[in-house]
Design a binder for these strands. Structure first.
Lengths: 226, 226
DNA sequence: CGAATACTTGATGAGACTCAAGCGCCGTGG
DNA sequence: CCACGGCGCTTGAGTCTCATCAAGTATTCG
């Protein structure tokens, strides 16, 4: 079931709320053949170490890429929303597992097909190089947050990121649970929960329901930034 | 003073001691014109925000890439040793500052020259894409260490990395001071120092001098790993 | 309605940071 | 040659943040 896979302008990860070095106009208007696949919430798309035959573009829903630590903890590397591309690897295997956060639809694209194209199409090359470098900047941002940020800084950065990636309204619907947030930020669910409660008490946010956050004072959240 | 800039097989950063998805045989045997430059210890090569006209390859000595945080702390992103390439950016400016750790010699290569070549040479494209993805994997590794590792895990990983990147002998000569190590690992100098002392007491390492470390029990160090 | 799941809240403790002092090395100057 | 000062590193004591352990509440779903 080959389907058009327009590679979008949006970078593939949610690593940083920082302004991205990325413009819609930078994106070449190329398309690639792919296969539509559906996954229901919490199903794996692929596991750590699986052969990296495909990379993916999210059509709808949310996907997380993550790795499992020797002590059983899990580090979520990124959340991938509609339009994001993920699963492109340097080596022959996936270094990160990918799992559906919500029910989702993705387009899978054979990597070999891309490899053959990469010799020829200049714009395609440019796009992938820029995409890779762009992702790297985001990973760095995330690394900084993980390594240097306090719990409050982490949660604030996360909320601002989610707001920015959504319709950027003040009301944010979180597609993932507390455990996912904690594993993304390198915290425990208790600390995430406490930090959110504390922010509500301080008037920075409102929590009409666990999954819904209203940003009341973006400036205050931003001021926490690393 | 144009000089040959053979892009080496070694990835450009010291982000993880993990086996790299990278073979010497993968490297295209292309060369590029560059300019030799020398810097003495602690001198900046470029600052955060500088226009990214060039990228660099280390000939000798050590360079660090880092960013400064709003509270005055510094995060070292990577140490670049002889053969490493760094300073290649997605956008038009350097997101990270680069500074000489020791006296060093680098080859600077104009980025524009590369951009024009990227349209044509397939292998060159491949190399850069792979290089970028490879670096990303290392940044991820570093992010994991920063976010999830204990002080002992961080220091152990750092020592193993340094050993692996050097001649891989058990005796490692550290080119940087404690503050650099601390800023690389997201710790304080006191914690780095204490951790090293503790490891010596436990018989994992020996410290003949502050800058010299002898790995006595690599397995024990590795067992600390995240 | 009841059970399971997700989330919140509280009490306690471990690990790393901060502040502060002390050590050792090296270069300078008397 | 030795005294001095500066710098990098080490060590110690107290504090703070976040993880852990443990209930308790809310929400969903059978």
């Amino acid at each position: 079931m080959p389907v058009s896979l327009a590679i979008s302008a949006k970078p593939s990860a949610m690593h940083g709320a920082a302004p991205l070095p990325w413009r819609a106009s930078d994106t070449p208007a190329f398309e690639m053949a792919g296969t539509v696949m559906r996954f229901s919430a919490d199903r794996p798309l692929y596991a750590e170490g699986d052969e990296a035959r495909c990379f993916y573009k999210v059509v709808s829903g949310v996907v997380r890429t993550c790795q499992f630590l020797s002590d059983g903890r899990r580090q979520i590397d990124a959340f991938h929303l509609a339009g994001d591309v993920f699963g492109f690897e340097a080596g022959s295997t996936h270094r990160l597992a990918a799992e559906a956060v919500t029910d989702c639809t993705v387009i899978a694209c054979r990597r070999r097909a891309l490899d053959t194209m990469l010799g020829g199409d200049g714009r395609l090359n440019q796009w992938f190089i820029t995409h890779a470098l762009s992702c790297m900047a985001q990973v760095r941002e995330h690394a900084l947050l993980l390594g240097r940020g306090s719990a409050a800084q982490k949660v604030a950065a996360f909320l601002l990121e989610m707001a920015e990636r959504g319709d950027s309204a003040n009301s944010v619907e979180l597609p993932m649970g507390r455990q996912d947030i904690a594993d993304y930020l390198g915290l425990t669910i208790e600390t995430v929960s406490r930090t959110l409660s504390h922010m509500e008490k301080d008037g920075m946010i409102r929590l009409p329901s666990p999954r819904k956050v209203v940003l009341k004072d973006r400036a205050a959240l931003r001021n926490l930034n690393v």
